[in-house]
Design a protein around this nucleic acid. Structure first.
Lengths: 163, 163
DNA sequence: CAGAAATACTTGTACTTTCAACTATTGTCA
DNA sequence: TGACAATAGTTGAAAGTACAAGTATTTCTG
């Protein structure tokens, strides 16, 4: 077990005094995210595969038209800073999974473009990620409930973005 | 605006093909978490206050009996690695907010113990964090809906933990 | 059209987090 | 008791991330 803070002993789940329902929902959100992310990471490293961030990049690009995306849009989709994305993409390029392509009409923009090797690796990672996703989501939620959850979360995110 | 990836332009929210409702719920969860966390960070730095991680530590300790917690339990509550917590606590100690205390009966364990200055800082940070929490949660969810959301998320987290 | 402002991305630096190895202490059982 | 395993926490090296400054290109404006 590669040192991940999974609640095995579970001291007492001390939310006894805690606070409002809203704050508790926020805590639950943060913890659920961390726990699920942690398990995915763990499963990937156990399988000798690259980190989850790489998969997020590959999967996002795979869903994009022409399998490429402007750096800015990709950063936004992944909710990380543009500076961080530049270096993340650098690593994926060095690994031969992506290439940087440029825009004719606006020479400021550069695209992160998926290469065949990237598609291949993504196909290899997907089942591992999906398996963890099934453990957490499919086993606990009907499709309708998942939709409802998504709708709620998008509402939360929405008002967190429109400044 | 301190370079944070908030969806201002919103290219198209390209989840057109995407995948199953479960995967989309997961994406929404990850994005909501990142967006809300980002806004909290932004608000804290704008107010000249320490990072969100510090608040998490202080708030967790404040809710604990005797305002202290074993390092391991604290790491678990925050869902970070023990190694990471050691250094995080080191920084808070250096800032005079915490102290390290020890256990008589088991000399392996050490506690992170809240100091008055830590309580004070937490009280100063709390309204900033709460404000962002209100924007995202209180404005969008009734208390009942928040409870429902929490219940759902705890279920997800549960099956992600019981390995 | 020149110059200022805005946009898109990259890079240098500093900080944070993780991973793996290490020390110290406690528990187990032969 | 005495060795072996398990547990609690810390630490050094490496990877990742963010912030601020910097370059290049485009757009706006007088």
């Amino acid at each position: 077990m590669p040192e991940t803070a999974t609640a095995t002993t579970s001291p007492s789940t001390q939310d006894s005094c805690g606070g409002t329902p809203h704050r508790e929902a926020w805590l639950a959100l943060a913890r659920a995210h961390a726990a699920i992310t942690g398990r995915m990471q763990e499963a990937l490293t156990a399988a000798g595969l690259p980190p989850l961030a790489w998969f997020e990049v590959l999967a996002t690009l795979a869903d994009a038209p022409e399998e490429k995306l402007k750096m800015g849009d990709l950063a936004e989709a992944l909710v990380i800073t543009r500076g961080g994305l530049t270096k993340l993409v650098d690593r994926l390029i060095k690994a031969g999974l992506l290439e940087r392509t440029f825009c004719e009409t606006d020479r400021r923009v550069s695209y992160a473009t998926l290469l065949p090797a990237g598609v291949e690796l993504m196909e290899e990672m997907r089942p591992v990620v999906s398996a963890e996703l099934d453990v957490a989501f499919t086993a606990n939620l009907s499709e309708g409930q998942a939709d409802e959850l998504r709708e709620t979360l998008e509402r939360l995110r929405g008002s967190a973005c429109d400044a």
